[in-house]
Design a protein around this nucleic acid. Structure first.
Lengths: 157, 157
DNA sequence: GCTGAAAGTATAAATTC
DNA sequence: GAATTTATACTTTCAGC
């Protein structure tokens, strides 16, 4: 059975998405050569993929180490907030914190998982103190000792 | 006391990095206007930031949901491997798996944290079986119920 | 979706500050 | 030494087919 995607995205679309998620600076001309299409046809497809929301955004990935972000932490936490509107506020505040790179609601022991980048332990301490003021009941922090892989590339091919 | 970075990167460099990590498709002309420099001067700075490793790569962020990746999982695992060369092999294999988006060595109860994207439960089951064949002793899987934030933007400003 | 032309960009070289 | 202006090559992008 075919997936839903294959009915909307053909092989060329997937090739384009895959090329761009690995190297978004590829020129339209280069992309066109890769998929054996004319530059205008290629351009139209990429624009379509963007406007239809398959491509969320284009970003530059900076080097954490070179920029002094020595601490990458995973913070598990639970809250005693249960009112829907107050939970929403909490999530809005978490989202607005620039040091919070990722945040998910998780199955399991804790309510939330946060991925946080900080420059040093003092910064991290301040951040955790800030969390405690938001109605967080339980926090467990794990430090990343070593990065083995960091990718934004979805396995679409 | 000034940070190390401020000795190498000036305010304009940080502005450029910050602009590009949020929207890497900005044209050189637009960047130049933002930082009040001529396009060639801006271009030289960006190239320098790339060649010196402050910018790792440029990528397009795809929409997981639209592409059918319904399962985002965080897998904690420990291994019984202790030989250095065999551990290296394990890490190389983890790195090579396209469904493994991120992988870190962690402090705490488990040796590794994996962030894994899969299309459905059957796929996930197959993946976990594959892990079990690599010398993994203990696995704990948490599913992301909801994404509150997903960002690649470091808080450099 | 293709071809060919027009507009806009990136980039290298020469010049100035 | 670093930024600017000038000039060229390349790319994107819009017609018409």
């Amino acid at each position: 059975m075919e997936s839903i995607i294959s009915k909307i995205l053909d092989q060329i679309d997937l090739q384009l998405l895959n090329a761009l998620q690995n190297e978004s600076q590829l020129s339209n001309t280069e992309l066109a050569k890769m998929v054996n299409l004319s530059p205008p046809a290629t351009h139209a497809r990429v624009k379509r993929l963007e406007s239809e929301g398959y491509i969320d955004r284009h970003v530059a990935i900076l080097n954490q180490e070179k920029l002094g972000f020595d601490l990458l932490c995973f913070i598990f936490m639970s809250t005693n907030i249960h009112q829907a509107d107050k939970l929403e506020l909490l999530e809005k505040e978490l989202k607005a914190m620039p040091e919070v790179l990722e945040c998910y609601c998780l199955t399991g022991e804790y309510d939330y998982l946060l991925k946080v980048a900080k420059k040093d332990r003092k910064d991290l301490e301040g951040f955790i103190r800030k969390l405690n003021q938001l109605g967080i009941t339980r926090i467990q922090t794990s430090l990343a000792l070593r990065e083995i892989k960091y990718s934004t590339t979805l396995p679409i091919s």
